[in-house]
Simulated assay, not measured.
Amino acid sequence: MAERTDRAEGERRVWPCRIAAVLVLAVVAAMMAGCSGAREPGTGPATAPTSPTSPTSPPAPSGDASPSDEPAAAVPHPVSLPALAQTAFDGGRLRLGAEVARTARHRQYAVTYRSAGLTVSGRLAVPEGPGPFPAVVLAHGYIDPRIYVNGQGMTRERSWFGDQGYVALHVDYRGHAGSDRDPSGGLDMRLGYTEDVVNAVLALRGWDGPVDDERIALVGRSMGGGVVYNALAVTPGLVDAAVVFAPVSSDAVDNFERWIRPDPARDGVARRILRRYGEPSANPAFWQGVSARTYFGEVTEPVLIHHGTSDDSCPIRWSRTTARLMEQAGVDVTLRTYAGEEHAFGPEWNLSMERTGRFLRRHLP
Protein backbone atom coordinates (compact mmCIF):
# COMPACT_ATOMS: atom_id res chain seq x y z
CA MET A 1 0.00 0.00 0.00
CA ALA A 2 3.09 2.29 0.30
CA GLU A 3 1.42 3.66 3.45
CA ARG A 4 -1.55 4.94 1.39
CA THR A 5 -4.46 2.79 2.34
CA ASP A 6 -4.90 6.76 1.28
CA ARG A 7 -24.03 15.18 5.30
CA ALA A 8 -25.04 16.56 6.05
CA GLU A 9 -27.25 15.05 8.66
CA GLY A 10 -27.49 17.05 11.88
CA GLU A 11 -29.73 14.45 13.40
CA ARG A 12 -29.09 10.81 14.22
CA ARG A 13 -28.97 8.21 11.44
CA VAL A 14 -30.13 4.70 12.19
CA TRP A 15 -28.01 2.06 10.53
CA PRO A 16 -29.37 0.23 7.48
CA CYS A 17 -31.60 -2.70 8.21
CA ARG A 18 -28.87 -5.11 7.14
CA ILE A 19 -27.26 -4.60 10.55
CA ALA A 20 -30.31 -6.12 12.20
CA ALA A 21 -30.15 -9.13 9.93
CA VAL A 22 -26.50 -9.69 10.74
CA LEU A 23 -27.22 -9.35 14.44
CA VAL A 24 -29.73 -12.17 14.15
CA LEU A 25 -27.17 -14.39 12.47
CA ALA A 26 -24.72 -13.55 15.23
CA VAL A 27 -27.13 -14.74 17.89
CA VAL A 28 -27.75 -18.01 16.07
CA ALA A 29 -24.03 -18.57 15.56
CA ALA A 30 -23.31 -17.90 19.21
CA MET A 31 -25.98 -20.36 20.30
CA MET A 32 -24.63 -23.04 18.00
CA ALA A 33 -21.13 -22.50 19.34
CA GLY A 34 -22.40 -22.79 22.88
CA CYS A 35 -21.22 -19.31 23.82
CA SER A 36 -23.02 -17.88 26.82
CA GLY A 37 -20.99 -14.92 28.06
CA ALA A 38 -21.89 -12.74 31.02
CA ARG A 39 -24.40 -9.98 30.46
CA GLU A 40 -25.98 -7.11 32.28
CA PRO A 41 -28.94 -8.41 34.25
CA GLY A 42 -32.24 -7.73 32.57
CA THR A 43 -30.74 -6.58 29.26
CA GLY A 44 -30.62 -9.84 27.29
CA PRO A 45 -27.63 -11.36 25.56
CA ALA A 46 -25.09 -9.54 23.49
CA THR A 47 -26.18 -9.67 19.86
CA ALA A 48 -23.28 -8.02 18.06
CA PRO A 49 -21.87 -9.40 14.81
CA THR A 50 -19.47 -12.29 15.23
CA SER A 51 -17.34 -11.53 12.18
CA PRO A 52 -15.38 -8.27 12.48
CA THR A 53 -14.00 -8.62 8.97
CA SER A 54 -17.35 -8.67 7.19
CA PRO A 55 -19.96 -7.39 9.66
CA THR A 56 -22.26 -5.58 7.30
CA SER A 57 -22.71 -8.17 4.57
CA PRO A 58 -26.40 -9.12 4.38
CA PRO A 59 -27.37 -12.78 4.36
CA ALA A 60 -27.93 -14.37 0.96
CA PRO A 61 -31.62 -14.17 0.07
CA SER A 62 -33.59 -17.38 -0.09
CA GLY A 63 -35.62 -18.03 -3.21
CA ASP A 64 -38.40 -19.55 -1.11
CA ALA A 65 -38.48 -16.85 1.52
CA SER A 66 -41.50 -14.65 1.94
CA PRO A 67 -41.86 -11.49 4.08
CA SER A 68 -43.52 -13.52 6.80
CA ASP A 69 -40.52 -15.88 6.89
CA GLU A 70 -38.06 -13.11 7.74
CA PRO A 71 -36.75 -13.17 11.33
CA ALA A 72 -37.66 -10.38 13.69
CA ALA A 73 -34.99 -7.73 14.16
CA ALA A 74 -32.63 -8.51 17.01
CA VAL A 75 -32.33 -6.03 19.86
CA PRO A 76 -28.68 -4.99 20.22
CA HIS A 77 -26.90 -5.17 23.54
CA PRO A 78 -27.46 -1.81 25.28
CA VAL A 79 -23.69 -1.32 25.53
CA SER A 80 -22.80 -1.62 21.85
CA LEU A 81 -22.25 0.50 18.80
CA PRO A 82 -25.48 -0.76 17.17
CA ALA A 83 -27.41 0.45 20.24
CA LEU A 84 -25.61 3.79 20.17
CA ALA A 85 -26.45 4.15 16.47
CA GLN A 86 -30.14 4.05 17.43
CA THR A 87 -29.75 6.87 19.94
CA ALA A 88 -31.68 10.11 19.50
CA PHE A 89 -28.67 12.42 19.90
CA ASP A 90 -29.60 15.65 21.63
CA GLY A 91 -26.53 17.89 21.48
CA GLY A 92 -27.23 21.59 21.90
CA ARG A 93 -27.25 24.61 24.19
CA LEU A 94 -23.62 25.57 23.54
CA ARG A 95 -22.82 28.32 26.03
CA LEU A 96 -19.68 30.47 26.08
CA GLY A 97 -18.10 31.25 29.43
CA ALA A 98 -15.02 33.28 30.22
CA GLU A 99 -12.36 34.06 27.63
CA VAL A 100 -9.36 31.97 28.68
CA ALA A 101 -6.78 32.59 25.93
CA ARG A 102 -6.10 34.81 22.94
CA THR A 103 -3.73 35.05 20.00
CA ALA A 104 -3.59 37.59 17.20
CA ARG A 105 -5.87 35.34 15.12
CA HIS A 106 -8.33 33.74 17.52
CA ARG A 107 -9.84 33.71 21.00
CA GLN A 108 -10.60 30.78 23.27
CA TYR A 109 -13.47 30.36 25.70
CA ALA A 110 -14.54 27.93 28.38
CA VAL A 111 -17.82 26.40 27.22
CA THR A 112 -20.53 23.94 28.13
CA TYR A 113 -23.14 22.11 26.07
CA ARG A 114 -25.74 19.41 26.54
CA SER A 115 -25.17 15.73 25.76
CA ALA A 116 -27.56 12.92 26.68
CA GLY A 117 -29.11 15.16 29.31
CA LEU A 118 -25.70 15.88 30.84
CA THR A 119 -23.70 19.10 30.94
CA VAL A 120 -20.33 18.62 29.22
CA SER A 121 -17.58 21.20 29.48
CA GLY A 122 -14.90 22.08 26.96
CA ARG A 123 -12.85 24.79 25.28
CA LEU A 124 -13.79 26.65 22.12
CA ALA A 125 -11.38 28.44 19.77
CA VAL A 126 -13.05 31.08 17.58
CA PRO A 127 -11.12 32.84 14.79
CA GLU A 128 -11.21 36.63 14.53
CA GLY A 129 -13.54 37.86 11.83
CA PRO A 130 -17.14 37.46 10.75
CA GLY A 131 -16.97 33.89 9.41
CA PRO A 132 -18.59 31.56 8.80
CA PHE A 133 -15.66 29.25 9.49
CA PRO A 134 -15.16 25.50 9.05
CA ALA A 135 -15.14 23.66 12.36
CA VAL A 136 -13.47 20.72 14.06
CA VAL A 137 -14.46 18.78 17.17
CA LEU A 138 -11.42 17.64 19.16
CA ALA A 139 -11.41 14.34 21.09
CA HIS A 140 -8.47 14.18 23.51
CA GLY A 141 -6.57 11.11 24.68
CA TYR A 142 -6.74 9.37 28.03
CA ILE A 143 -5.94 11.51 31.06
CA ASP A 144 -7.04 10.32 34.49
CA PRO A 145 -10.34 12.15 35.07
CA ARG A 146 -9.29 12.80 38.66
CA ILE A 147 -6.49 15.12 37.51
CA TYR A 148 -7.82 16.29 34.15
CA VAL A 149 -8.45 20.04 33.78
CA ASN A 150 -10.56 21.89 31.25
CA GLY A 151 -9.14 21.83 27.73
CA GLN A 152 -6.24 19.51 28.54
CA GLY A 153 -4.73 17.12 26.03
CA MET A 154 -4.96 18.88 22.66
CA THR A 155 -3.78 22.39 23.48
CA ARG A 156 -1.40 22.64 20.50
CA GLU A 157 -3.98 21.41 18.04
CA ARG A 158 -6.73 23.68 19.36
CA SER A 159 -4.52 26.75 19.03
CA TRP A 160 -3.30 25.69 15.58
CA PHE A 161 -6.84 25.26 14.31
CA GLY A 162 -7.93 28.61 15.73
CA ASP A 163 -5.03 30.38 14.04
CA GLN A 164 -5.77 28.58 10.75
CA GLY A 165 -9.34 29.83 10.65
CA TYR A 166 -11.26 26.91 12.19
CA VAL A 167 -13.73 26.99 15.03
CA ALA A 168 -12.37 24.24 17.29
CA LEU A 169 -14.51 22.68 20.03
CA HIS A 170 -12.40 20.63 22.45
CA VAL A 171 -14.61 18.15 24.32
CA ASP A 172 -13.75 17.44 27.96
CA TYR A 173 -16.07 14.34 28.01
CA ARG A 174 -18.48 13.42 30.78
CA GLY A 175 -16.78 12.89 34.13
CA HIS A 176 -13.98 15.34 33.24
CA ALA A 177 -13.32 18.90 34.43
CA GLY A 178 -16.61 20.82 34.68
CA SER A 179 -18.75 18.09 33.11
CA ASP A 180 -21.38 16.10 34.93
CA ARG A 181 -20.22 12.76 36.26
CA ASP A 182 -20.19 9.68 34.06
CA PRO A 183 -23.37 7.81 35.03
CA SER A 184 -21.97 4.49 33.78
CA GLY A 185 -19.16 4.43 36.33
CA GLY A 186 -16.77 3.42 33.55
CA LEU A 187 -18.81 0.42 32.44
CA ASP A 188 -20.05 1.82 29.11
CA MET A 189 -16.75 1.00 27.36
CA ARG A 190 -16.36 4.74 26.68
CA LEU A 191 -19.32 4.84 24.37
CA GLY A 192 -20.50 7.80 26.43
CA TYR A 193 -17.45 9.72 25.23
CA THR A 194 -18.50 8.90 21.68
CA GLU A 195 -21.97 10.25 22.41
CA ASP A 196 -20.42 13.45 23.78
CA VAL A 197 -18.40 13.95 20.58
CA VAL A 198 -21.41 13.36 18.32
CA ASN A 199 -23.44 15.77 20.42
CA ALA A 200 -20.63 18.34 20.22
CA VAL A 201 -21.10 18.40 16.44
CA LEU A 202 -24.82 18.97 16.88
CA ALA A 203 -24.16 21.66 19.50
CA LEU A 204 -21.91 23.51 17.06
CA ARG A 205 -24.58 23.30 14.37
CA GLY A 206 -27.19 24.63 16.79
CA TRP A 207 -25.00 27.50 17.98
CA ASP A 208 -25.64 30.98 16.60
CA GLY A 209 -21.89 31.60 16.25
CA PRO A 210 -19.80 31.80 13.03
CA VAL A 211 -19.78 28.07 12.15
CA ASP A 212 -20.23 26.79 8.62
CA ASP A 213 -22.57 23.86 9.28
CA GLU A 214 -21.59 22.20 6.01
CA ARG A 215 -17.87 22.00 6.85
CA ILE A 216 -17.18 20.08 10.07
CA ALA A 217 -14.56 17.41 10.83
CA LEU A 218 -13.59 15.21 13.77
CA VAL A 219 -10.02 15.17 15.10
CA GLY A 220 -8.85 12.75 17.80
CA ARG A 221 -5.65 11.78 19.55
CA SER A 222 -4.82 8.41 21.14
CA MET A 223 -7.97 7.30 23.00
CA GLY A 224 -9.74 10.14 21.24
CA GLY A 225 -8.82 8.50 17.94
CA GLY A 226 -10.83 5.48 19.02
CA VAL A 227 -13.71 7.77 19.97
CA VAL A 228 -13.55 9.26 16.46
CA TYR A 229 -13.65 5.78 14.89
CA ASN A 230 -16.76 5.01 16.94
CA ALA A 231 -18.45 8.27 15.97
CA LEU A 232 -17.82 7.65 12.27
CA ALA A 233 -19.32 4.17 12.57
CA VAL A 234 -22.51 5.16 14.41
CA THR A 235 -23.29 8.45 12.62
CA PRO A 236 -22.23 8.11 8.97
CA GLY A 237 -22.78 11.38 7.13
CA LEU A 238 -22.64 13.52 10.28
CA VAL A 239 -19.33 15.17 9.39
CA ASP A 240 -17.19 15.61 6.29
CA ALA A 241 -13.84 14.11 7.29
CA ALA A 242 -11.80 12.78 10.22
CA VAL A 243 -8.17 12.93 11.33
CA VAL A 244 -6.58 10.85 14.09
CA PHE A 245 -3.15 11.03 15.69
CA ALA A 246 -1.47 7.99 17.30
CA PRO A 247 -4.86 6.32 17.74
CA VAL A 248 -5.71 3.37 19.91
CA SER A 249 -6.76 0.10 18.30
CA SER A 250 -10.09 -0.18 16.53
CA ASP A 251 -10.47 -3.49 18.44
CA ALA A 252 -11.78 -3.00 21.98
CA VAL A 253 -10.00 -6.16 23.15
CA ASP A 254 -6.58 -4.73 22.23
CA ASN A 255 -7.26 -1.62 24.28
CA PHE A 256 -8.64 -3.53 27.27
CA GLU A 257 -5.63 -5.87 27.35
CA ARG A 258 -3.14 -3.04 26.82
CA TRP A 259 -4.29 -0.61 29.50
CA ILE A 260 -7.25 -1.60 31.63
CA ARG A 261 -6.65 -5.21 32.66
CA PRO A 262 -2.95 -4.81 33.65
CA ASP A 263 -3.31 -1.42 35.40
CA PRO A 264 -3.50 -1.86 39.21
CA ALA A 265 -5.19 1.54 39.48
CA ARG A 266 -8.01 0.27 37.27
CA ASP A 267 -8.24 -3.24 38.65
CA GLY A 268 -11.65 -2.55 40.10
CA VAL A 269 -13.19 -1.36 36.83
CA ALA A 270 -11.52 -4.21 34.92
CA ARG A 271 -13.10 -6.76 37.25
CA ARG A 272 -16.50 -5.10 36.94
CA ILE A 273 -16.26 -5.08 33.15
CA LEU A 274 -15.39 -8.77 33.02
CA ARG A 275 -18.03 -9.68 35.57
CA ARG A 276 -20.71 -7.90 33.59
CA TYR A 277 -19.71 -8.65 30.00
CA GLY A 278 -17.47 -11.71 30.19
CA GLU A 279 -13.96 -12.45 28.98
CA PRO A 280 -13.33 -11.65 25.31
CA SER A 281 -12.78 -15.33 24.61
CA ALA A 282 -16.05 -16.31 26.32
CA ASN A 283 -18.28 -13.58 24.90
CA PRO A 284 -16.73 -12.42 21.61
CA ALA A 285 -20.04 -11.02 20.33
CA PHE A 286 -20.09 -8.37 23.05
CA TRP A 287 -16.49 -7.28 22.43
CA GLN A 288 -17.03 -7.11 18.68
CA GLY A 289 -20.11 -4.99 19.33
CA VAL A 290 -18.00 -2.31 21.02
CA SER A 291 -15.19 -2.44 18.43
CA ALA A 292 -15.32 0.15 15.66
CA ARG A 293 -13.67 -2.15 13.12
CA THR A 294 -16.71 -4.39 13.18
CA TYR A 295 -18.64 -1.57 11.50
CA PHE A 296 -16.14 0.01 9.13
CA GLY A 297 -18.55 -0.78 6.32
CA GLU A 298 -20.77 2.01 7.69
CA VAL A 299 -18.08 4.72 7.47
CA THR A 300 -18.68 7.23 4.66
CA GLU A 301 -16.10 9.91 5.46
CA PRO A 302 -12.44 10.14 4.36
CA VAL A 303 -10.01 9.38 7.19
CA LEU A 304 -6.41 10.50 7.73
CA ILE A 305 -4.32 8.54 10.26
CA HIS A 306 -0.98 9.85 11.62
CA HIS A 307 1.25 7.39 13.50
CA GLY A 308 4.90 7.30 14.59
CA THR A 309 6.99 4.18 14.11
CA SER A 310 8.43 4.43 17.66
CA ASP A 311 5.12 4.79 19.47
CA ASP A 312 5.43 2.54 22.53
CA SER A 313 1.97 3.35 23.82
CA CYS A 314 -0.18 2.64 20.77
CA PRO A 315 1.89 0.38 18.50
CA ILE A 316 1.86 1.35 14.85
CA ARG A 317 0.70 -2.13 13.86
CA TRP A 318 -2.72 -1.16 15.23
CA SER A 319 -3.06 1.67 12.72
CA ARG A 320 -1.72 -0.47 9.90
CA THR A 321 -4.38 -3.07 10.66
CA THR A 322 -7.09 -0.43 11.00
CA ALA A 323 -6.12 1.19 7.68
CA ARG A 324 -6.11 -2.19 5.93
CA LEU A 325 -9.55 -3.11 7.29
CA MET A 326 -10.94 0.31 6.43
CA GLU A 327 -9.63 0.02 2.90
CA GLN A 328 -11.17 -3.43 2.57
CA ALA A 329 -14.49 -1.96 3.73
CA GLY A 330 -14.32 0.74 1.05
CA VAL A 331 -13.28 3.66 3.27
CA ASP A 332 -11.16 6.43 1.73
CA VAL A 333 -8.30 6.10 4.24
CA THR A 334 -4.76 7.48 4.26
CA LEU A 335 -2.11 6.32 6.71
CA ARG A 336 0.87 8.64 7.22
CA THR A 337 3.79 7.21 9.18
CA TYR A 338 6.62 9.12 10.87
CA ALA A 339 9.98 7.41 11.28
CA GLY A 340 11.23 7.54 14.87
CA GLU A 341 8.27 9.60 16.10
CA GLU A 342 6.84 8.66 19.48
CA HIS A 343 3.32 8.76 20.86
CA ALA A 344 3.08 12.47 21.72
CA PHE A 345 4.59 13.68 18.42
CA GLY A 346 7.56 16.02 18.77
CA PRO A 347 9.81 16.81 15.79
CA GLU A 348 7.19 15.72 13.25
CA TRP A 349 4.23 17.51 14.81
CA ASN A 350 4.44 20.49 12.43
CA LEU A 351 4.57 18.19 9.41
CA SER A 352 1.56 16.24 10.68
CA MET A 353 -0.41 19.47 11.05
CA GLU A 354 0.58 20.67 7.58
CA ARG A 355 -0.69 17.39 6.17
CA THR A 356 -3.84 17.74 8.25
CA GLY A 357 -4.42 21.22 6.85
CA ARG A 358 -4.06 20.03 3.27
CA PHE A 359 -6.37 17.08 3.93
CA LEU A 360 -9.09 19.26 5.46
CA ARG A 361 -8.85 21.92 2.74
CA ARG A 362 -9.50 19.15 0.23
CA HIS A 363 -12.48 17.68 2.07
CA LEU A 364 -13.90 20.85 3.68
CA PRO A 365 -13.59 23.18 0.66
Rank of each mutant, 00 (worst) to 15 (best):
A241S: 11
L351R: 15
P132V: 08
G153E: 03
A101E: 06
S62K: 13
R271C: 06
F89E: 04
D254E: 06
G44N: 05
H306W: 01
V333L: 09
A329S: 13
V167H: 00
H363P: 10
P236T: 12
V79K: 02
A88E: 07
S222C: 06
G237V: 09
M154G: 08
A270H: 02
R4I: 03
A241K: 10
L84E: 06
P52W: 00
F161N: 05
G268K: 15
E279S: 15
Q328W: 03
V331A: 09
Y229D: 08
T5Y: 15
V299C: 05
A217T: 10
R258A: 06
F345T: 03
Y142R: 13
L364F: 03
T337L: 15
P49A: 11
L191Q: 05
A2Y: 11
L84F: 00
R146K: 10
E70Q: 14
E99W: 00
G178A: 11
A270L: 00
R146S: 10
D254T: 08
A73Q: 14
S115H: 13
T112F: 14
A203F: 00
A203P: 00
T334H: 15
E298Y: 00
Y148Q: 07
P71K: 15
Q108K: 14
V299D: 05
V228D: 02
F133G: 07
R272Q: 13
E9I: 05
Q108G: 10
Y166N: 01
G346P: 01
Y338M: 02
Y295R: 06
R266A: 06
Q328C: 11
R174L: 04
V333A: 14
R258H: 08
T43S: 10
A110M: 01
G237I: 12
Y173V: 05
R7V: 07
D69K: 15
G308C: 05
V167M: 01
P55W: 05
S222M: 09
V219H: 15
A200T: 06
R158P: 03
R272V: 03
T53A: 10
A252S: 13
S159C: 11
D213Y: 00
V171D: 01
E3L: 14
G224I: 09
A48P: 08
E342D: 07
G268L: 13
A29Q: 10
V227H: 00
P127L: 03
L218P: 04
T322L: 12
R272G: 12
N199K: 14
L124V: 07
V244K: 04
W349T: 02
S115Q: 12
M31Y: 11
W207Q: 09
P58L: 03
V111Q: 01
